Measured scan of single mutants.
Amino acid sequence: MMITLRKLPLAVAVAAGVMSAQAMAVDFHGYARSGIGWTGSGGEQQCFQTTGAQSKYRLGNECETYAELKLGQEVWKEGDKSFYFDTNVAYSVAQQNDWEATDPAFREANVQGKNLIEWLPGSTIWAGKRFYQRHDVHMIDFYYWDISGPGAGLENIDVGFGKLSLAATRSSEAGGSSSFASNNIYDYTNETANDVFDVRLAQMEINPGGTLELGVDYGRANLRDNYRLVDGASKDGWLFTAEHTQSVLKGFNKFVVQYATDSMTSQGKGLSQGSGVAFDNEKFAYNINNNGHMLRILDHGAISMGDNWDMMYVGMYQDINWDNDNGTKWWTVGIRPMYKWTPIMSTVMEIGYDNVESQRTGDKNNQYKITLAQQWQAGDSIWSRPAIRVFATYAKWDEKWGYDYTGNADNNANFGKAVPADFNGGSFGRGDSDEWTFGAQMEIWW
């Protein structure tokens, strides 16, 4: 008995050590931004985005507190085989008060198993909700290839000249389909599951310092038995992507060409959309029709120009041509140079221009935006974070068209359509004006 009692403290210590080691193995990653800002004409900070554009130049032009908190852990490992559990909870508030209630979004919860298939060394099996191989332009917060959501897949299969990845994910639309009631009355209240099937071939070395990635995505509306879509709904579509990445000037340049059809055009990033119906009456549900095509040509990157200068840049042309004439032509160009006074202090400027032409009206909206920021960051790279910055932003815009969301679809035949700025004596778009804002912001990723 005495021997047992003497061994007990040692056993407890060993158990505590094991539990401590396991606790220390938890990975904590994430992203956050928050700050305070004012508008020159009075009131809180207002942000500037061109009507019809899918993004905006973000430096000194973000008006919310946003965070993603990721917890993950390698829960099992034997040799080169392992299982990893990953989670991500995100939230966004308007940064107007101390207490701002919000419903967090559970954006990731997945398990990734590496090297589980003997004859596919280096590959990963995964299932669950996941940010899946996302491609974006940081300076405009624009995701041009992103099929994230609940799904499953097999990735990084070594095929000799590259890595092959296969995945299936889902994005549902509210009110996407109906069941038959009586007297030809349909009640569009059932969600429609939109499935996306993704095939990618990446890391193909085609020139010194250059790699090529090719991808095909097929999206479709997956209806339940005895349900139907509204007439004209976009049932399926394709997205084709080619991306060349070149190492240059201690950074990279990415050149991207994408072509999409029908349900893959509205978001243009790989998620299927077009079966959703915002109104019970299918007579007024025309606005979900996105049959047509999209072409996107994009070049972006980040480079170092000597010891003291870094720069991000982007140039993009996007043409969404829809059968219902509600598409757009959008082109944007911008730069973000950074001058480093010390390894932790810099001055950053961002200059961006957007131009969006309405397919329906032929009119154009444009905006110039310039931001000057003094910044303190954890390192001497344009990617170094955390960063604390004080900024001043000036924007000038001239908008000739907007979307008509007055009333509702039952009493407005133009609901959701592009109209000229002065349509029917109204005021659509943001008109011709300018404004400036100033404030302070922190940004961090880890």
Rank of each mutant, 00 (worst) to 15 (best):
G40S: 03
N207S: 10
E399D: 04
F106C: 14
G301V: 12
I140F: 13
D434G: 13
K400R: 00
Y313D: 08
G209S: 08
G292D: 00
T102I: 09
N207H: 13
V12A: 04
K364N: 03
K250E: 11
I288F: 15
K56I: 15
A242T: 02
T406A: 07
A242D: 08
S266T: 08
A152D: 14
G153D: 00
S179T: 09
K396R: 01
G268S: 02
G176V: 04
G439V: 13
G402C: 07
H300N: 03
I36F: 06
D325G: 10
E62K: 09
I36S: 06
V333L: 12
T87N: 06
M294T: 01
G210V: 11
R336S: 03
Q96L: 15
V248G: 13
D323Y: 08
D325V: 09
W330R: 03
A233V: 03
V159F: 13
T347S: 07
M311V: 07
D299E: 03
T347P: 08
Y313N: 00
D86G: 04
A221T: 04
N355Y: 13
V12L: 03
V89G: 09
I335N: 00
M264T: 02
T342K: 08
L120P: 15
W397S: 15
F85S: 05
Q73R: 06
V248L: 07
T406N: 09
D103V: 07
D86N: 06
A285D: 09
Q375R: 04
T124I: 04
W322C: 04
R296C: 00
N184D: 01
N289T: 07
Q73K: 15
A94V: 01
R336G: 13
S346C: 00
N408I: 12
T361N: 13
T241P: 08
E191K: 02
A127T: 04
E155D: 11
F131V: 11
D236Y: 08
T65S: 15
M338T: 05
N194T: 09
S304F: 01
W383L: 13
D187V: 02
G425D: 03
V356F: 11
E243A: 11
I351S: 14
N226I: 03
T87I: 00
Y91C: 07
Q49H: 02
R170L: 13
S178C: 14
G37A: 01
L5Q: 04
A32T: 02
G40D: 04
I370N: 01
T189I: 00
A16P: 13
Y403C: 05
C47W: 08
D262A: 04
S20T: 04
K77R: 09
H293P: 03
D432E: 14
N411I: 09
G352D: 01
K129T: 09
Q441H: 14
E108G: 02
Q318E: 01
P121L: 09
A67D: 14
T261A: 00
V196F: 10
A167S: 14
G426C: 13
M316K: 10
P104S: 11
N414H: 10
S381G: 12
A260D: 00
T437I: 12
Q377K: 13
G268V: 07
R228C: 08
S20C: 14
W401R: 01
D310A: 08
M264I: 03
T393I: 00
W126R: 09
